[in-house]
Nucleic acid binder design. Structure first.
Lengths: 236, 236
DNA sequence: ACCGCCGGTGTACGCCGTACACCTTTACGG
DNA sequence: CCGTAAAGGTGTACGGCGTACACCGGCGGT
């Protein structure tokens, strides 16, 4: 028989399948569990096979970034520049939140990929279309920083100390006491959720609110500067 | 002779010497060249010796962060909250700029060290001393994000494409042309330095200016919200 | 005189990324 | 129809990493 009885022939790999599998694996097992070997195993292939489709691991990560960037909604034509940019950035945020590893990978990339450049180019274009000067737009992009991607560096990646979901509440309260003695301002701030829930530990912050708060503060600032015809030459 | 003729006995290691050597090595050779092995070699010691002084590499990096945080100037008592915070943050920036790897390490740390907590606590205290509510301060800290450390995620870590210090200007100009065709807005922005130097490629941005621009935009925003008695409950 | 501990050693394990030579399958031009 | 060359997958191997674990010399305290 010329046909192999084996379950047909594996459909051959290609760059796209590799990238998608990498994204899926990182989603499921975490970015630190993504190695060329583990990815190859996932694809039922020997590690070196991957190198026929991506040059090296850096390029793999770059490709994964572009996959995620491709999930960001295209700009919506209507609306003023401010809310158009706001919407787009929040869309980027949703994409990044779907892949919790993505922000860390974007941070660590050392040279921009075409997809990244496309996105940045288009955001800049939205500022310009809104009438902001190239000068102001330049500084606005810097001011946004990683916020154009919809994320901010978390100051407290998790609650400090051991995970909150362990140990008896006795010890937990004691720990909070220690914290309050040593870092009174931090504790006060962490507990500062205006009214409602008075759970002992502030159950974390509303990240979405925090993000929009800062984003709006910046966008409003840009708008104000734009209206008053600001140029960077003013501060000689 | 009971005395060894060898150059006496090596003064024994301790945690502090290890951390300082690690910082020095990272400064000199880059953070990616810092391994337990290379650090041990630097200290004329076998790799495993380090583990008598730091639990593992994560803790080594945490310790290095605390060394850098220790370089940040203490708060200066005089002056209003805004300029006091401004000064402190810019001092943090100077410390981080002295150790170019530090921002990346701070970003990647997963749980805060005592030194980090001290610093954040004191910044928060400065907001509170200025009269800002715990609520507003909370959001202000989030809005600052990594900017309390004096750095911002760079959008273009270097100029895109190959390093600028190579190849003939002919090819470089052609590359710029391609860029301008594909990413017109980016190119316009990059070249938008108000008057002076008209070098072909914008020779990079004035990072210090960009940082202060964004920092002041945020601080001014906080001040405005403070003056008008803003609380987060407003946006129900 | 002894013991215990502290700091430094040596060996080894299991990961990692990837260079390189090899083999199979497929596509195509003569 | 065949020969060949490319494309895609394999196997082996190397050097590097973090670190577990057993060990050992010398010093201080009893």
């Amino acid at each position: 028989m010329t046909q192999q009885t084996e379950p047909a022939r594996r459909t051959p790999l290609n760059r796209d399948r590799v990238l998608r599998a990498a994204v899926a694996l990182a989603d499921r097992a975490g970015i630190e569990a993504l190695s060329m070997r583990s990815l190859a195993h996932e694809l039922d292939v020997v590690p070196m096979a991957l190198y026929k489709h991506v040059a090296n691991k850096k390029q793999l990560l770059d490709g994964m970034v572009d996959v995620i960037v491709g999930e960001i909604d295209p700009p919506a034509g209507d609306a003023d520049w401010k809310s158009a940019i706001r919407r787009r950035v929040l869309s980027a945020r949703r994409a990044l939140l779907r892949h919790s590893w993505a922000s860390r990978v974007i941070e660590s990339r050392t040279s921009p990929t075409p997809g990244v450049l496309d996105y940045l180019n288009s955001i800049i274009g939205m500022f310009r279309a809104g009438g902001l000067s190239a000068d102001l737009t330049h500084h606005a992009m810097h001011a946004l920083g990683s916020r154009v991607w919809g994320f901010t560096q978390e100051l407290f990646p998790a609650s400090p100390g051991p995970a909150p979901a362990d140990a008896d509440p006795q010890a937990l309260a004691a720990l909070l006491g220690e914290m309050a003695a040593r870092y009174p301002h931090i504790v006060e701030i962490v507990l500062a959720r205006p009214h409602d829930g008075e759970s002992v530990v502030g159950q974390g912050c509303d990240d979405q609110f925090e993000f929009e708060f800062a984003l709006d503060l910046l966008l409003d600032g840009f708008e104000r500067l734009h209206r008053q015809g600001w140029t960077s030459a003013e501060r000689f």
